[in-house]
Write a protein that binds this DNA or RNA. Sequence first.
DNA 1: CGTTAATTTGAGACCATTCAATTTCGGTGG
DNA 2: CCACCGAAATTGAATGGTCTCAAATTAACG
Lengths: 239, 239
Amino acid sequence: MSENLHLAPLARRWSTLARLNHDDREAILTLPFRREVFAKDAYLLREGQQPAESALLLSGFAYRQKLLRDGGRQIINFLLPNEFVDLQAAVLGTADHNVQSLNRSEVAIIPRSALLELADARPNLRTAMWADKLIDSAIVREWVVNVGRRDSRARIAHLLCEIAVRLRNAGTNGDMFDFPITQEQLADATGLTPVHTNRTLQALRRDELIQLTSGSLKILNWKALREAADFDELYLHQS
Amino acid sequence: MSENLHLAPLARRWSTLARLNHDDREAILTLPFRREVFAKDAYLLREGQQPAESALLLSGFAYRQKLLRDGGRQIINFLLPNEFVDLQAAVLGTADHNVQSLNRSEVAIIPRSALLELADARPNLRTAMWADKLIDSAIVREWVVNVGRRDSRARIAHLLCEIAVRLRNAGTNGDMFDFPITQEQLADATGLTPVHTNRTLQALRRDELIQLTSGSLKILNWKALREAADFDELYLHQS
DNA sequence: CGTTAATTTGAGACCATTCAATTTCGGTGG
DNA sequence: CCACCGAAATTGAATGGTCTCAAATTAACG
C-alpha cells in the first residue's frame, strides 16, 4: 500500500466530522499530492485566480484575507494545520479572496479532480467535506459579530479564545502554544490598528489573563478571558 | 404531476449555479413541503435548536443574527426570497445563530430527509447546494471586511450595493426596489448605532447617491455609490 | 554584531457613541 | 376623515474609544 502519512491527520480530523469506514480512510491516505513549502507572507491563493488544484495546509498557519482599495487589509479567518485552503475552488472556480502563509508553512497540493472523484464516490467523505465547510462558515459568522459589536478588549480576547480552542480540538495543547501571529496580523484580523492592538494586549497581560512573549501564548486565566471575550464555543461545533 | 410552482424560483436559481437537467428540476418541483407565514421579527430559527426540517424563504426578507451577552445584536447576513434558512442544519445538527423574519415572510418547510435524499441521488443538485452554500460564505466573508475595515459611509454604501446587486441577480429591478429594512436593522448589520446610521444615510442622500423614502430605495448614482463603497461584486459569483 | 522587523510609548485629533428629546410616519379605531 | 398611538426617524450636545503620526525601544535573524 503506497500510503503517505502526511494525510493521516486529515483523515483523523474528518473522522470527527463524519462516520468514516476503513475504505474512506484509505481513500484519503492514497490521495495523490505533492508537497510545497511557502515562506512567511507568501501567497497560497490569489483573488481572481482559478486554481486547478487544491491546497491542504500540512504544517504552519495561514490566513484568508482581502485587500481594500486604500491598501488596508482585513484578515477573514486563520487556517490551522490540516485545513483546506480552497476546498471551494472546485465549484466556484474563481477565488474571491487571498490566502497568505502566516509563517513558514508546508502544503499538500492535490489535484482538484481527485477530490471531486472522492466526493462523488464516497458519501461519508462528502459529508465530512460539507461539515468542514460549514464549520468554516460558522467561524466567519462569529468573526462578523466579533469585529462588528465587541470593543477592542473583548475582540482580541475572543480571537485568542477561538485559536486556543481550535488548537485544542486539533489535538494541540490549548493552554500554552506557539503563537506566530504578529500584532500587525492580529490588528488586521480584529479590524483595529496595530497601536491599539498593542495597548489592548498589554491590558490583558496587566490583568494577568494571558502571557504573550516571543511567539508563545499562555492562557493564565481561562475563566476571566472567556468572560472578557463573551466567548461561547458552540459555533465551533466540536465538544 | 403534482408540481407546485412555489418551488419554481428555487429551481430557476439553482439552474444558474449548476447544470440541471429536466429530472433535476422535476425533483425540486416535487419536493414535499408545507407553507408557513412569519410576522416581522418572528424567529425562523433559534441558536441551539436542532430542526428536523429546513426552511426555504418564499417571499419577504429574513436575516441571520447573533445576540451578545450585553443585549447587542449583530446581523450576519440578509436572506432574500428563494434562499435557504438552514441548508446546513442537516449536517451540523445544532444551529449556531438565530434567523429572524425581517418583514412579513412566507416560508416553505421541507423535511430534512427529502433534501438529503435529493443530494444523495442527484449529483447536479448536490453541486447546486454546494455552490449555494459557498456563495453564502463568500458574502459573510465580505461582511467581515465591511464591518472590520470600512468607515460608516463606505460600510452602508457597500451594504446597499450588495443588496441591490443580489436583488438584480435574482431577477428584481436593482435600481429601485422595496426596502423594508429599518435603520435599526441597518445599524445592527453594519456594526454602527442607529443614530450614526441615520446621519450617514442623510449624507448619502444629501450627496444624491441614493433616495430612501417610505420603504423604497432608489439608487441615483451607481458610479458614485460603488466608488464610496469600494464595491466589487466578484464575491457574489454571478456575472 | 549589524540590520531589519516587531513592539512599545506619547500626545492630539477625530469618528462614532451615548443619552435624551423631538418630529415624522404608518396603521388603527372612533 | 380625523384623532390617536406606537414605531421609526431625526436632531443636539457632550463624551469617549480608537486612530493618526511620530519616535523610541526591543527582539529576531543572518
